[in-house]
Amino acid sequence: MPNPPPSLRQRALALLARREHSRLELQRKLKPHAEEDMELDQLLDDFEQRGWLSDARFAESWAHSRAARYGGARLKAELRTKGVAADAIDAALDPLQGSETERAREVWRRKFGTPPADARERARQLRFLAARGFSMEAIYTVVGGDMDET
């Protein structure tokens, strides 16, 4: 005799046991398994009240795990797509602001390691760091040169 499918609550707990999720993210993953939207909303409300589901905790965890590779702008955009509120995003990213240049320098060192030989290579390095979401101030500090040159 086959086992019955896991309940919505069991599915949610299994997902949260693996890693933190934002409310929107968990809602999207559980929606196909919910019979009613109200049932899902009640479950998520219950999890938030118990402290098992927290957008602020998710934002902090997400930012911490990806900060070594990406800048503040990219992290902010990713957290917005995950449905995290602006105040929770700001609180999660605030501690990272002071290390933006150092993080950009480490990403640049792993990818390039040597200063650009010409303007074309410099532009390539600038674009790479910009695509990673680092601030222009951090990018120009790392790659070198004046911000007004481009």
Score class of each variant (00 low, 15 high):
124 R>Q: 09
40 L>P: 12
148 D>Q: 14
131 A>G: 12
136 M>H: 04
144 G>C: 08
22 S>G: 09
83 G>F: 05
88 A>C: 14
101 T>E: 14
50 R>C: 05
108 W>M: 11
92 A>S: 01
97 Q>Y: 05
7 S>Y: 06
113 G>K: 10
109 R>E: 15
6 P>G: 08
148 D>T: 14
130 A>H: 10
31 K>E: 01
100 E>P: 00
113 G>A: 08
99 S>L: 07
88 A>K: 12
52 W>A: 06
72 G>L: 14
29 K>H: 07
26 L>Q: 00
121 E>A: 12
73 A>T: 11
92 A>M: 01
91 A>Y: 04
27 Q>W: 05
70 Y>T: 01
4 P>T: 14
94 D>Q: 08
139 I>P: 02
86 A>Q: 09
1 M>D: 15
124 R>V: 04
117 A>Y: 07
66 R>Q: 13
40 L>S: 07
132 R>P: 00
122 R>Q: 04
56 A>D: 10
37 D>L: 12
90 D>A: 04
94 D>R: 04
96 L>M: 06
3 N>G: 08
116 P>E: 14
3 N>F: 14
73 A>E: 09
129 L>C: 05
145 G>C: 12
1 M>N: 15
81 T>S: 10
110 R>T: 13
125 Q>C: 06
97 Q>F: 03
50 R>M: 12
17 A>Y: 06
105 R>S: 15
69 R>N: 13
54 S>C: 13
67 A>V: 10
149 E>S: 12
41 D>E: 14
116 P>H: 13
92 A>Q: 01
24 L>V: 01
24 L>N: 01
36 E>A: 13
90 D>Q: 05
90 D>K: 02
93 L>Q: 02
